[in-house]
Each structure stands twice: as C-alpha cells, then as structure tokens.
C-alpha cells in the first residue's frame, strides 16, 4: 500500500530509503555528536526513546522539527559533507531555523553531497509513517510512503 503526501521543498533532490521516525523534537547535537566515531551514525540522545540507538545514516529521518543547540545546522552540514547524514529530512511541521540552516548550507556549499529536505508535510504524515516504511522523495516535494 502506498500513501502520498506533499510538502514544501527546502533543499531539492530525489531519494528512496527506509524511514526512521521520531515523534518528538530531534535534538541534533544530542543525537549526532558521536557520529564521527561510529561506523554508521546512530542516535545517542538519551532523552529520545523513539530513536535512541537507531541508525540515522542513510535513512529518511521523519520528524516534527529539530531542537537544542545552535550547533545543529553546522553538525548537519558536516554530516552531509562527510557522508554521515540521514539521506533526507522530512518535517511534518514548518522547519526550524537550525535545520533550515543545515539544509541550506549543504545545498549552497556542497557540489556532490546533498540532503533533500521537505517540510510542512502535516501532522497526518508523522502519525502515519513508521520505522522501516519505504519512502520515495520527489524533487517537487511529493513523498510516497510504501508499506
């Protein structure tokens, strides 16, 4: 079964990958601060039971927004440039300033490494999507969730 959602494109691109879902705010620094010593980036945020210890790298990270330290955008940018980032970020709500910075920095300053980012997918999107769903993201902001 495939369900379709449509959002706003913050950083364009197309990707197909598995979903990893957090219903609560994604604390970028708390989640990703150990990414560079991990073989694959895993969430180390003790306060987020939705994704604690789960692999983030190469996944479609579905989230309401990011929270926490203003190093957030910088960490996302470094993660993208180092190949340690999620494949894509899908926000149910309007994107926050830190994640937007990471997405825009990666888009403007990176030739090859990209992290497509879409926001305003709606609360229904986050209620529906589950870990392991196959997600296809289109460059016009269309998101297909296959289960």
């Amino acid at each position: 079964m495939t369900k379709t959602f449509k959002g706003r494109v913050i950083a364009p691109g197309e990707v197909t990958a598995e979903a990893v879902v957090t219903k609560q705010g994604f604390n970028t620094l708390a989640s990703m601060q150990m990414m560079f010593i991990q073989p694959k980036t895993k969430c180390v945020d003790q306060s987020n039971p939705d994704i604690y210890k789960k692999v983030l790298q190469g996944k479609v990270l579905c989230l309401p927004q990011t929270i926490g330290s203003t190093t957030g955008g910088m960490f996302l940018y470094s993660a993208v440039k180092s190949g340690k980032a999620p494949a894509c970020l899908l926000f149910s709500k309007e994107i926050d300033s830190l994640a937007a910075a990471g997405a825009v920095l990666a888009d403007v300053w990176s030739e090859n490494d990209k992290m497509p980012t879409i926001d305003r997918l709606g609360d229904e999107f986050l209620e529906y999507v589950r870990d392991g769903d196959k997600i296809s993201v289109k460059s016009d902001g269309t998101v297909l969730v296959e289960r």
């Binding site: 926490g68 330290s69 203003t70 190093t71 957030g72 955008g73 910088m74 940018y77 926050d96 300033s97 830190l98 910075a101 990471g102 920095l105």
Partner: peptide
C-alpha cells in the same frame, strides 16, 4: 549570534533581537 543560551538571554533579558541562528549562519 548563535549559542542558544546567549541568544535567549539577549532576546529576553536585554531585549535585543536575534533569531536562533545556527553556527556558520551567525
């Protein structure tokens, strides 16, 4: 500015105007 604790202090206690900018953006 960036640094979440400094931004919230500057906005709230000093009445300055600053978004929660990310590192590099600031």
């Amino acid at each position: 500015w960036a640094e979440s604790s400094a931004v919230v202090y500057a906005n709230s206690v000093l009445g300055a105007r600053c978004n929660r900018n990310s590192g590099i953006i600031e």
